[in-house]
């Protein structure tokens, strides 16, 4: 397993380099002087000249790239035009919200998606399956912003159970109870993805149930519930784990929408606002963070996959 992990880490390097080149070129593809773009409209000619010299904008592109990469590796992602603060600090300020939102979303996806998927598969063909399958279909096809607004209308406006927007930090007044601000957003974000997992678990369990080894398990005289969990569900998880990586990709763009709908001070809303403010250093920084995160998640998914399927790591 360790050797496999190390091997996978090495295969990340070329991908990361390619991604970094794309992110770097982003600023240079926008027409105009990159130093002027990075500093924004209010910059004085002196400031522009100073940054140009610092970043080597008068030197060949590939040298600029390595200068930039060197800075990035030291954690220097530039200065936000809007906040006049280092980009890393700006992103960091949205990190708490986004990480908590992502964790709660994953929690719902697993807590809702897996059991309902198992239920739907074990009861397949019955009315229970009909209801869960159509429910999953509905949830999967609902646009995130619409579901978010709907939940706000019901649970915040009408019932008044949960706050409709914002998120004070856990270190503010209220402490851990501030998590209630994230319940509706995380449910909004979880719904379509949990629905995806329901459908995936159901389909892959029905596939596995037809396999010969399940007949062997039944021939041992095992209780049907044990056959379902230990033999069918366990093997179906292999296909489900493989899909988790894709779920994450969808999650990122849906998180942007959700954070905007619920006015959460997270990285997703930061992206939207930075685009509106033409805060290119921040956009660049966030994209870089997302790319790295995406690769780490996919590595974790692959490792989970190798753990779930003994045939993988040896190939």
């Amino acid at each position: 397993m360790l050797a496999y992990t190390v091997k996978r880490l090495f295969t990340l390097i070329p991908t990361l380099l390619a991604a970094s080149i794309l992110v770097f070129l982003f600023v240079h593809l926008i027409p105009g002087d990159p130093a002027a773009i990075l500093l924004g409209d209010t910059a004085t000619p002196e400031e522009i000249a100073q940054l140009s010299a610092e970043m080597g904008f008068d030197r060949p592109l590939w040298i600029q790239y390595f200068l930039w990469l060197g800075n990035v590796l030291q954690g220097d992602l530039g200065i936000s035009i809007f906040f006049r603060e280092p980009v890393l600090a700006v992103i960091g300020s949205g990190a708490e919200t986004s990480i908590l939102l992502a964790s709660m979303t994953m929690f719902w996806i697993i807590l809702i998606g897996l059991p309902i998927g198992v239920l739907s598969a074990t009861k397949h063909g019955t009315w229970v399956d009909q209801i869960t399958s159509s429910g999953a279909m509905l949830a999967a096809s609902m646009p995130t912003f619409w579901l978010g607004l709907y939940l706000i209308m019901i649970f915040s406006v009408t019932l008044g159970w949960f706050p409709s927007s914002g998120f004070p930090s856990l270190s503010d007044d209220g402490g851990i109870t501030n998590l209630r601000y994230l319940i509706l957003p995380s449910l909004t974000l979880a719904a379509p993805n949990a629905a995806l997992i329901v459908r995936l678990v159901r389909a892959s369990m029905l596939d596995v149930a037809r396999e010969d080894h399940v007949r062997t398990a039944r021939a041992k005289g095992l209780h049907p519930a044990r056959v379902t969990i230990k033999h069918v569900f366990r093997n179906a998880l292999i296909a489900v784990a493989a899909a988790f990586g894709f779920t994450f990709a969808a999650l990122i763009s849906e998180a942007v929408v959700t954070e905007t709908v619920f006015s959460l001070p997270g990285i997703g809303r930061l992206v939207v606002q930075s685009i509106l403010r033409r805060d290119y250093p921040v956009i660049q920084g966030v994209i870089l963070v997302i790319v790295v995160l995406y690769m780490i998640i996919n590595l974790l998914v692959d490792l989970a996959y190798a753990r779930l399927d003994p045939r993988v790591s040896l190939k």
């Binding site: 396999e211 010969d212 080894h213 007949r215 041992k220 399927d309």
Partner: peptide, 18 residues
């Protein structure tokens, strides 16, 4: 699996791969 047991035609797929 106790007093009566069975073996099948497909040895390649009759055991759980995981």
């Amino acid at each position: 699996g106790n007093r009566m047991a069975m073996i099948f035609q497909e040895p390649m797929t009759s055991l759980n791969p995981v």
